[in-house]
């Protein structure tokens, strides 16, 4: 049977986490289809068809899908579900919002945040903030899954030849409407796909001190993240939060500045290849996972690091 991936997109292009989801889908079967539900979403559908491994694109192009409202998208997923053994979406706020609603409509127990695929019905997923990894087996006839992007390589954006096929829209459920959004604008790479991430915590003391980290980020081509404490204190916007209940990142290099290393924070970054911690408390738990720990006052250490990078890069 075929595998369906629900694409996350902005009507023009496909979001990167969808590419990792395609790789997870390809581990389940050869015939990977993609559902693009949007409004004026021809370019996104074309981009979906070009992804290596995608053999068919289902395009539902209608006003009610413009903002990906779950009340409208979930019935569409249900309507096209027949004939698929698995339906996957990235475990982003988009996938987490839409997929369980579709799962309930299909009377299926969704498997969230899958980080490994053992067989067509057996999956690995982190539980308890990643303090344990469960292997679970689903007995549902159709399996709905959200995929932890950091656990799968992204599929190539080119090389596929999936034909785009129109599917009928399911209409506006008339339950919720999109009013507006305040998206964080940044020239820097996206947090979840950046090769390098530098994050600040409560130790930063104020949002006014984050430019210190941004300067380093710009030298390294890095994204900037934060702990929950830094977000709660209003230093940076909510979408900077890394952790159990924020974003999960696994860059080549993660630099934690003024972050203690609570388990909820570690849950979002401990799969990074190399971890650096700068903290003035040599007992901070972050040092237990750091490859390179630097016990120092960040207000001295960060400018020093900046100067050193300036010199040697």
């Amino acid at each position: 049977m075929s595998i369906l991936v629900v694409a996350e997109h902005d009507n023009a292009s496909i979001k990167p986490s969808t590419l990792n989801t395609v790789t997870a889908a390809a581990a389940l079967g050869d015939d990977v289809h993609m559902l693009v539900a949007g409004s004026g979403c021809q370019s996104a559908a074309d981009a979906a068809g070009a992804i290596a491994g995608v053999t068919k694109v289902l395009k539902a192009d209608s006003a009610e899908y413009e903002h990906g409202l779950a009340e409208n998208v979930a019935p569409l997923i249900k309507a096209v579900a027949d004939g698929y053994s698995h339906i996957l979406a990235p475990a982003t706020t988009f996938g987490k919002n839409v997929m369980p609603r579709a799962a309930a409509m299909l009377d299926t127990q969704q498997i969230s945040d899958v980080s490994g695929i053992e067989s067509a019905d057996t999956f690995e997923r982190p539980i308890y903030a990643g303090n344990a990894i469960a292997t679970v087996q689903s007995s549902d006839p159709i399996k709905l899954i959200t995929v932890r992007s950091t656990a799968f390589e992204p599929a190539a954006e080119q090389g596929g030849s999936g034909a785009v096929e129109d599917v009928a829209a399911t209409g506006d459920a008339g339950l919720s409407t999109f009013v507006g959004q305040e998206l964080t604008k940044s020239e820097r790479p996206e947090l979840t796909t950046a090769r390098i991430v530098i994050s600040g915590g409560r130790g930063m003391q104020s949002g006014d001190n984050f430019p210190m980290l941004e300067k380093i980020a710009d030298k390294l081509g890095a994204a900037v993240g934060a702990s929950r404490a830094a977000v709660d204190a209003g230093y940076v916007p909510n979408d900077y939060q890394v952790g159990q209940t924020g974003k999960v990142v696994a860059p080549d290099l993660y630099i934690a500045v003024g972050i203690s290393g609570a388990i909820q924070h570690l849950a979002g970054m401990k799969d990074s290849k190399v971890i650096v911690a700068i903290n003035k408390d040599d007992e901070a738990p972050i040092f237990q996972v750091a490859d390179y720990g630097w016990v120092a006052d960040l207000f001295e250490a960060v400018p020093e690091l900046d100067a050193e990078l300036e010199k040697s890069l």
């Binding site: 679970v136 549902d140 390179y292």
Partner: peptide, 29 residues
């Protein structure tokens, strides 16, 4: 609908080394 077959600890991460200066950190990275 879903059976838990097993639950294991995640792979442990070892604490690494301490550095004392920016020069040392950049050199190591």
């Amino acid at each position: 609908r879903v059976k838990t077959l097993k639950v294991v600890e995640p792979p442990a991460r070892e604490a690494g080394v301490k550095v004392a200066s920016a020069a040392e950190l950049v050199e190591k990275l």
